[in-house]
Each structure stands twice: as structure tokens, then as C-alpha cells.
Amino acid sequence: MTIVPALDLFVAGVVLIVAVWTVVARDSSSAVVGFVAYGLLLALVWVRLGAPDVALTEAAIGSGLTGALLIGAAARLRAGESSTSAEHLGGVGRTLVAALATIVAAAIAVALLSLPDPAPSLAPEAAANAGATGLGNPITNVLMAFRAMDTMLEKFVLVIALVGVWSLAPDGAWGGRPRSYHRADPEGALVFLARVLPPLGVVLGIYVLWVSADHPGGAFQGATILAAMWLVVLMAGLGDVPEVGRQQLRLMLVAGPVVFLIVGLGGLLLGGAFLSYPQDWAKPVILAIEFAMILTVAATLALLVAGPPERSAEP
């Protein structure tokens, strides 16, 4: 019976070791690799906390896509790394900061240990209203129905972040293509994987969205898999990033938020509240939003990783 608590302690210990490594590692590339490992281990912790949906998100976005971004950035910044090594804080400063961090960690720990028991929970309400949407997965219910406003605003955040990234383009590359990846060896493993993986990945991504009605999964997790497939193709040089000024691309990027907004305003006209779904049509409406969303989110995530335009648009 003691094997599970011992495993918990072991996983928590490994997570902490990798987190320490991420902070103290000497060069940035090692720290980034530590961070990716940390994210994957954290997914295990989320499973132990009874949250497989969060575990999928953490592994796919928190570790995978963020890792891809960070590794790319670390590689480009390597040239400038040596110039900053002389700016480390002195011993006294370090001690003070360590004391501050310890106080913050202790305060969080005290807050944790003094949480009320039994814990307040909205789970009974979520269970009582699950029948209204016809979805079996409580997380999807919360994301798409009970707190759909949060999910809609998050779509806007993604698109606004992409607008922010694109606005960092140099003047000459305005509306052009993001930087291209190094040409991969056409006989190499990357090109082979980029031909074999995408058909499987696209099916898997749509499957993860489809099962999220009743089982762990979801539109973000599915969209991340689709984005990863596109990125593999781009990195292998089998396709090029589209010009960010293209009309179709921009339509795709706003499709998700626009469908969400139309449904929301429709609810205002028909049901009397923003984002209220028609009683018998809740599930089809939610699936329609999710399928519009998966395209938009996949494209946005991949383009966020691709970065701002750096090559000028062809005339």
C-alpha cells in the first residue's frame, strides 16, 4: 500500500531536481532541455492529481511547443551569451534574493496547509448541470459551456499575441514570410518523419478533439498536435511558411474567434444571454465552435513558433 505515496515522493523529487537544474544550469541550451524534461514530468504529476486533460495540455503546449520555441531562441542567442556572463549578482545580492524566494515559497506552503477542510468545490454543480449540454467530459463542459467566456477571450489573446509577434517584423519584411529553417538532408530521418507522421498526426489531432466530448482530450490539445505536424513539415523543408499578409491565412486565423462571437451574439438574441446555447442543440453548436477553433488555434500556435516575418513578400 505504501508504493503509491513513495512514487509520489519520487516524482516530486525528480521534478524539483530538474527545476533546480533549469535555474542553475550554466548554459541556456542545457537549461531549456531541463525545462522540456520538467514539463513532461509535470504531466505525470497532473495525472496523479486527477487531471488528465491538464496533463495532455502541459505535455503538448507547456513542454512541447514552448520547448520548440525556447530551443530555437537559445540557438540564435548563443552568439550573445558570453557577453552577459559578467553581470551576475554578487554574493550578498544572491543571498537576499534566495531569502525572498524562500519566504514566498514558505508563504505558499503555509497557505496550502491552512486550506479549509472539507475543501469548497464546484464539482457537484458541474455534475448537476452536465445533462444540459449532453457532453460527458466535465472539463469540456466547463471550457465550452459553463465558462465559455474565458475560452473565447483566450482565443482573442492567441490572435493578439500573434499580431504582437508579427508587428516585430523589420520594415523590409512587412507582410512577408517568417525565417526559413535550415535545409534538412533530403535522405535524412527528419524528412522521412515529415512524410510519415503528418497523416497519422492529423487523424490523432482530430480524434483528440472528437473524444473530448466524453473523455480526456480537447480542442487545444488536438490543435497542438496539428500545429506540431505542420511544424515538422516546415522544419524538414517540405513546405514553406506562408506569407503572413495572405488573405486566406488571415481568414483562417480569425475563423475561430468569429464563430465563437457569432454563437455568443446568437445566444443573446435567442436565449437572452451572451453565449447561451439553444437547449437541444448545445452539443452540435459546441462541436461546430470546436472545429472552427481547432483550425484557428493550430494555425496560430504554429505561426507563433515560426516567429515574425523576416523575408520580404514576393511581388
Binding site: 491538464v54 458541474a126 483566450e154 507563433l304
Partner: peptide, 26 residues
Amino acid sequence: RGAAAGFPGDPIPQALVITGVVVAFS
């Protein structure tokens, strides 16, 4: 800690974390 009604955890904070992870990525 808020596990109830047959769920392994309170789904509302879990859903908020999913939203939070995506916003942190952006």
C-alpha cells in the same frame, strides 16, 4: 482537494489551468 460528485478533481480550476497554460504560451 475539491474532488466530489464522482470527479477526481474540481473541473472548474482544472479548466482554468488549461486556459492559463495556453495564455502563458502566447
